[in-house]
């Protein structure tokens, strides 16, 4: 197993958001994390990736206990993520954005002497091609369309050749055909690069079409966990969604 979460708890003051989350993920699985609003999905991602410290419980990644690790240390363990609100480098070009990530992953950030313009050029263009932004490599990031920005964020997250990707709402703000494109890209990443994918989604059609496994989070704990068909037919899951979207 590549990710194991044991009885993870997280509170913000009096507000208890995660109330003992436990789950395991096998390598290379394409797993969706769903649940009603407020279930704690983003918080779970934030604690796993080290943005917040959990109050209790443990997180194991690739055999290591990363529970109390800093975010940058966790990312160097080849665990990457994207954010709900797309997090890119607005005024840099796509090329420069991915390049910066690569420089960082290769620990060359203190190099003041090398000529940087063409550094990692091959790798940058390869990553941009992979996400379908090859022809817009030199565009300013904030000139890209919303969907393209999300792809760029993916490219940035792929810079450290991650073993696992946590994607927070990868298709938010997208039209149906774009959703299909992004999801097939994500599946391609899993197939070709062997990346384990764990993604939060609200678009149920996308979830049921692409996910190989679904974990349902409700009120801070794992409510259901299984194959898409099982989850789809689970009456309790339908109930907690109050009939919306399922």
């Amino acid at each position: 197993m590549i990710l194991q979460v044991k009885e993870l708890r997280k509170s913000f003051g009096d507000l208890s958001v995660l109330k003992g989350v436990s789950l395991t993920l096998e390598p290379k699985v394409l797993c969706a994390l769903i649940g009603p609003n407020g279930a704690g999905k983003s918080t779970l991602f934030n604690v796993i990736t080290g943005l917040f410290k959990g109050n209790n419980g443990k997180v194991f990644f690739d055999g290591r206990d990363i529970t109390d690790w800093e975010a940058y240390r966790i990312s160097s363990m080849k665990l990457s993520r994207t954010f709900q609100i797309v997090s890119i480098f607005n005024r840099l070009s796509s090329f420069d954005s991915v390049q910066a990530a690569l420089i960082s992953c290769h620990k060359q950030t203190l190099d003041l002497l090398t000529k940087g313009k063409g550094l990692f050029r091959g790798k940058v263009l390869q990553l941009l091609d992979l996400v379908g932004l090859g022809d817009k490599a030199y565009w300013p990031s904030n000139a890209l369309a919303h969907g393209e920005k999300k792809r760029l964020e993916l490219a940035i997250a792929l810079a450290n050749e991650p073993k696992m990707l946590l994607l927070d709402e990868p298709t938010s703000g997208m039209a149906p055909d774009e959703t299909g494109e992004i999801m097939s890209l994500i599946k391609k990443l899993r197939d070709e690069m062997g990346v384990t994918i764990f993604f939060v989604e609200h678009d149920m059609r996308a979830v049921f079409e692409w996910a190989e496994r679904i974990i349902v989070l409700h009120q801070g704990a794992v409510f259901a966990d299984g194959l898409p068909m099982e989850i789809k037919n689970d009456k309790r899951v339908q109930e907690i969604y109050l009939g919306s979207g399922v």
Binding site: A71, Y72, S75, S87, F89, Q99, A101, L110, L112, G116
Partner: peptide, 28 residues
């Protein structure tokens, strides 16, 4: 100019645009 163009300079600019994102890639 060399400093701005170097890996350090590029990372510095990325940090300006989005410090959190750079922190996630391992930058102190």
């Amino acid at each position: 100019y060399k400093i701005i163009d170097s890996p350090f300079g590029r990372v510095l600019q990325a940090m300006r645009e989005n410090p959190q994102r750079m922190e996630f890639t391992g930058v102190n």
